[in-house]
Design a protein around this nucleic acid. Structure first.
Length: 424
DNA sequence: TCTGGGGTCCTAGGACCC
DNA sequence: TCTGGGGTCCTAGGACCC
């Protein structure tokens, strides 16, 4: 029988912060989104104070007087901790699928030992070697492994590891009866509301729905989800990191932005980030789209627009994409608005090698640009982000449009100037 | 005053072709 | 005057995920 495990870090961002600042243990702690906007990770203590996922900081800031700690997100640190955690977990099975920054699947099919014990071993090892607490869910399909993980997190009796493959049919049904349908992987707010109207309230109810009916009434996806809930794997295990098909870089601004020049700097910076990611995965893109918009939350006249531009040939050249992006910006910019957010999206992404070998002859100019870009990447890797950049991004972004991060912790593992210093 | 960012997949509908 | 039907491709938008 197949068996998959889903391992995820408990309130991952908060746990990363606690690794480097143990005094945060036991305290209500949240990590905030960019611009210190809203809560994106919460410890149990913070949840107990009634703080919801996504709660705006300005609405809950007053809880600081009751001991709440709010920290700005430190994404480089979390990315680095994630890599460590994934490496440790990866040693426990021949194949691993890294699903997000804080969770991964293992294929445990064919293993003969007690899987609950094995799950505890994984938790123990990860905690010892990285300091991150985790929960483990095990099931015959990925959807059931997710469900098991949810139970391991919410129901104390599992002690952090829930193995649904070890349950009798009856116990499994009872377990699924205890889970609301909206907690099932792939069932969001909208679908669960529609399901509720049909009297389908729990995961068990959904598992009993005819997959063919569900496919016709809702979508292919829901049909697959039901089959997975019944124990038939329908969602593939993906071990290779697939290259991204679109790459987005966008930000809300720390302050309202009105001028074309500031927007242009921001768009250039976003393009720089997106193109770096593009080159990292060895791809080229032939389309770039730019969007700008005012705040959704402020009263008054709003403006939102986007424009897509195609290059003459696929490219990973920051300069070519920046030119295209700025021409798109020219088309959609309207004066007289307070812009709150902007971003770029790269489209039509393909493998560099295939493009060069099969589709487009390499022009000498093109080759020079490519060397320039790899040099730029190498310098920035060695001497730090933004050591070398194109002038359009502006020299002092922080003064103009860049986001606020007033409560950020150190780059304990990612910045030479901020390494953790342990005094003897 | 202050409400994240980065993805994937599916579907419906239009354009176009035969 | 009559004014089909099926297929493909593309795009925008929706739903979902973390």
């Amino acid at each position: 029988m197949t068996a998959f495990a889903l391992i995820d870090g408990n309130c991952f961002y908060c746990s990363c912060e606690r690794v480097f600042n143990p005094s945060l243990k036991g305290k209500p702690l949240i990590v905030l989104s960019n611009n210190d906007g809203c809560a994106i990770s919460r410890t149990d203590e913070a949840k107990a104070m009634g703080i919801a996922m996504g709660a705006p900081w300005f609405q809950i800031k007053h809880l600081e007087s009751r001991g709440l700690v709010g920290l700005s997100a430190n994404f480089p640190l979390y990315g680095d901790m994630s890599e460590r955690m994934m490496r440790i977990i990866g040693r426990f099975a021949p194949v691993q699928e890294v699903y997000s920054i804080d969770e991964c699947f293992l294929d445990l099919s064919g293993m003969t030992q007690d899987l609950t014990q094995y799950g505890q071993q994984i938790r123990h090892q990860v905690f010892r070697d990285s300091g991150i607490p985790t929960c483990v869910g095990i099931g015959p399909t990925k959807t059931l492994a997710k469900l098991a993980n949810h139970m391991a997190k919410k129901q104390k009796q599992w002690n952090g590891v829930c193995d649904l493959t070890a349950l009798t049919r009856q116990d499994l049904a009872q377990a699924m009866h205890s889970i609301k349908v909206t907690e099932v992987w792939g069932v969001g707010k909208k679908i669960s509301r529609q399901l509720n109207e049909l009297g389908i309230v729990t995961a068990l109810d959904l598992a009993r729905l005819n997959p063919e009916t569900a496919r016709r009434k809702f979508s292919i996806l829901l049909g697959k989800t039901i089959q997975e809930l019944r124990g038939t794997p329908r969602i593939a295990f993906e071990t290779d990191m697939e290259p991204k098909k679109q790459i987005i870089s966008s930000r809300s601004f720390g302050f309202p932005v009105t001028g074309m020049s500031q927007l242009a700097e921001a768009i250039s910076a976003f393009t720089t980030i997106a193109c770096r990611k593009l080159r990292q995965q060895g791809s080229m893109a032939s389309g770039i789209s730019v969007f700008i918009r005012t705040s959704l939350f402020r009263p008054g006249r709003q403006y939102s627009a986007s424009h897509l531009v195609y290059l003459n040939s696929p490219s990973s050249d920051t300069i070519a994409h920046t030119k295209a992006a700025l021409s798109a910006l020219q088309k959609i910019f309207r004066p007289g608005f307070n812009y709150a957010k902007a971003g770029v999206m790269l489209f039509d992404i393909e493998d560099s090698l295939i493009i060069q070998q099969a589709l487009f002859p390499v022009e000498p100019e093109h080759e020079k640009r490519e060397k320039l870009m790899s040099m730029l990447d190498a310098i920035n890797r060695q001497f730090g982000k933004d050591t070398l950049k194109i002038a359009a991004t502006g020299l002092h972004p922080n003064d103009n449009w860049f986001m606020r991060q007033e409560r950020k912790t150190q780059g304990y593992t990612t910045n030479w100037n901020e390494l953790m210093v342990v005094r003897a």
